[in-house]
Structure formats: structure tokens, C-alpha cells
């Protein structure tokens, strides 16, 4: 899933400093699962903003609403009645950065992102998420025991580990596993170490963001 985290409240307060009434919109997709922008987080942020502004003597009206998803127009369309003539100064989106862009495309009202969209990843345990994919558009992880060196090696080495690997940790930080050490261990475990022997060829990054913004068209799914 897309993993995100809420921006610091101080930054958000600066964004909304001139507003009196805002619509805070959550998303029941990925950001609900990673506890960053679902109904619950909308409630917490809404309350925090009201507390802050009430304390300043400059109350902010925060209307809370959570959509099924913000990355599909049919759900974003549901905001239309709320935004019609209710005097909102801005929409605050708690979705990944796709959400505010979809809202901005549809409505003529300033939209602000409440989250920093951080990575494509998964939960290591409750409350801990890590990056697993860089969406390079051409998956090669089967060559590396099912582990991704592009997203998980600090230098995206395809022929690692580099000389900085020590005690299974990355030279960049002891918090980061050396994915190449893990790839090595896994290949030994699978009895496939010889697969790491050839020099892995230079990657074609044209399927990645380097080829320009990407689009997928599925004719079979069109209505």
C-alpha cells in the first residue's frame, strides 16, 4: 500500500492560518490502513486544529468527512453537495497526494495536503512500516530471492553488497538492513547462490518515473 504520515501540526496550522472554515477529508483506502488519514485520524486532526485555533482566540470551523477513496473520481464527486455554498475556505485532504490532486481537478477551491506520502510499503508490525517498492515499472525481484535491491538498497545496487555492508546493516544507518546481505542469506537458503554470480545487466529505467509520468490503459475495463 501507499504509506503516508501526517504533516506536523505546526505546518498545517500555518497552511490554514487565514481560514475560518475548512472541509477536512479523509480516505478509506491505503491511508486508513496505515493509520494516517482515515476516519479516526480525521477526527484527531480536526480536534487538534480546533483546539489550537480556539486557544489562539481565532476559532476554525473544521467539518470532517471521509470518502471511500480519493483516487477515484466517482467518490471525489460526492463532495459536490458539501462544497456547494457552504462557505468553505479550503479543502484539507488526508489522502495520499493523489487525493488533493483529484479534488483540485474537480473543484475550484484551494486544496491542501495534510499528509506526506512517503513510500510503497508494508507493516513490519503494528505501528511500524517500511519501504518495499520503488515502482520502477519492471519487477526483477525474482532474481534476488524475492527481495528488492532497487527500493531497499540505499544505492539501488543490482550487484551488491557494496563495501559498506557491515553486520547485516547498511553504511547509511544502523537502522537500515543491508538488503544485499539478506539477499545473499536468502539465496544460500534457497540453494541458488550461483544465480548471483553473473553480473546483473544495466537496468532499463524507461518504465520508471525516468520515462516521464506513467499511465496504464486497460481497454477491457472501460465502460
Amino acid at each position: 500500500m501507499v504509506v503516508a504520515e501526517r504533516k506536523p501540526i505546526e505546518e498545517i496550522l500555518a497552511m490554514v492560518a487565514d481560514f475560518k472554515k475548512v472541509l477536512l477529508v479523509g480516505c478509506k483506502g491505503c491511508v486508513t490502513v496505515c493509520c494516517a488519514g482515515g476516519t479516526k485520524e480525521v477526527g484527531i486532526l480536526g480536534s487538534a486544529l480546533r483546539i489550537a485555533r480556539k486557544k489562539q482566540g481565532n476559532p476554525l470551523e473544521v467539518v470532517e468527512h471521509t470518502l471511500e477513496r480519493q483516487c477515484d473520481p466517482e467518490y471525489v464527486d460526492q463532495l459536490a453537495p458539501m462544497l456547494a455554498g457552504n462557505g468553505f475556505d479550503a479543502v484539507l485532504s488526508m489522502a495520499c497526494s493523489v487525493g488533493p490532486q483529484f479534488i483540485a481537478k474537480k473543484y475550484t477551491i484551494p486544496v491542501y495536503p495534510m499528509l506526506n506520502t512517503t513510500f510503497i510499503g508494508g507493516a513490519l508490525e503494528h505501528g511500524v512500516w517500511a519501504e518495499f517498492c520503488q515502482s520502477c515499472g519492471n519487477c526483477i525481484i525474482h532474481n534476488f530471492g524475492g527481495l528488492c535491491p532497487i527500493a531497499r538498497c540505499s544505492k539501488s545496487l543490482m550487484n551488491g553488497p557494496c563495501g559498506g555492508s557491515a553486520n547485516k546493516k547498511c553504511e547509511v544507518s544502523p537502522e537500515i538492513d543491508c538488503i544485499w546481505h539478506l539477499i545473499y542469506d536468502r539465496m544460500v537458503e534457497l540453494g541458488q547462490l550461483e544465480k548471483l554470480r553473473p553480473v546483473f545487466p544495466i537496468k532499463d529505467w524507461s518504465t520508471s518515473r525516468d520515462g516521464g509520468p506513467r499511465k496504464i490503459v486497460r481497454e477491457d475495463l472501460k465502460l
Binding site: 539501488s156 545496487l157 543490482m158 551488491g160 557494496c162 546483473f200
Partner: peptide, 12 residues
């Protein structure tokens, strides 16, 4: 950072 290729690929 770039890391378009790695050191081994640069050699090649």
C-alpha cells in the same frame, strides 16, 4: 542521488 548504474555496470 543518481545510481542509474552500479560500479560493476560502470566497469562494463
Amino acid at each position: 542521488n543518481v545510481f542509474d548504474v552500479d560500479s560493476m555496470q560502470l566497469i562494463s
